[in-house]
Design a protein around this nucleic acid. Structure first.
Ligand code: MN
Ligand code: MN
Ligand code: ZN
Ligand code: ZN
Lengths: 147, 147
DNA sequence: CAGTTTGTTTAGAATTATTCTAATTCCTTC
DNA sequence: GAAGGAATTAGAATAATTCTAAACAAACTG
């Protein structure tokens, strides 16, 4: 996995390339999303960030998230009308929403499957994004380490 | 396609089976969704319904929609944080959200593709629903009939 | 039938995630 | 080290949806 300073540099570069600043707020928001690879909501991110930067405001968290999303550093995930979640996994992947625990799991999607999906579109339809999500229950819990 | 009285009967049967009533409000909400096979929002449905039943309230439209969805008579469709849309097409299908026009188009998904998607899930994951949606621009407009 | 229960509709208030506003603070550059 | 632009902040505003509580309607019950 990428080290902290690597991702820090990625953030700085990606932002400054667009004339934006790598502010402490943006850095800490980005960091907490990378740290725990669940799919937190803005509120959850706000809570985690406040632990490290007690003066940050919720508005700033929303602003930072918007910037990160627009610059392709995090992904935005929506399940019906629930609060938006944020995902640090930039690989092409789908989401499994476990209704019993509320957890969201990443599901790998091979490139060839993505190609197959794109082929479903009639001629002339050009998709700039494909979203695939599952809803259900994620399996028997065994006494093994989960994460 | 199914006739009006057919779908009317389907509504009545499906509802009364669950101890619910086929009220005029539920019937007219269902009817306007079937009539125009776009993917209207609750507000749009409210406007169309009011033309036939001027006294209906928005709360009732929401109530009726919830009932129809819960009883499998219409489908609910969400695109990120935009207002929920309602779809009368009960076949397994995906949605294409045309960002330039705002229109939503149904995309056929062969059963075998659905099977393939389900196979992406790790052992123990049980999906009760799979949602697939595309976002982009829907093709060159030619001078042919559209619908 | 009359009376009771149960389900439904309705207007308006409440909720809640998100966005907006306007003032302040922070950098960067001249 | 002023000026200008960018970013942050608190709090107000927004908007889709849900909730509340009262009125209404249909379905039972004896
Ligand atoms: Mn990788
Ligand atoms: Mn058919
Ligand atoms: Zn993810
Ligand atoms: Zn549809």
């Amino acid at each position: 996995m990428a080290s902290l300073s690597e991702t820090h540099d990625a953030l700085t570069k990606r932002l400054t390339d667009t004339g934006l600043r790598a502010t402490p707020q943006r850095e800490v928001v980005f960091k907490v999303i990378l740290e725990k690879r669940d799919h937190p909501t803005a509120d959850e991110i706000f809570a985690r960030v406040k632990a490290q930067m007690p003066t940050i405001s919720l508005a700033t968290v929303y602003n930072c998230l918007e910037t990160l999303v627009q610059n392709g550093l995090v992904r935005q995930v929506n399940f019906d009308r629930a609060p938006t979640r944020y995902c640090p996994n930039l690989h092409e992947h789908a989401h499994f929403h476990d209704e019993t625990t509320g957890a969201v799991h990443d599901i790998d999607v091979p490139a060839e499957v993505m190609v197959k999906l794109r082929e479903l579109l009639p001629h002339g339809y050009d998709a700039c994004a494909i979203e695939l999500s599952f809803r259900g229950a994620a399996g028997v819990r065994r006494n093994f380490a989960q994460n």
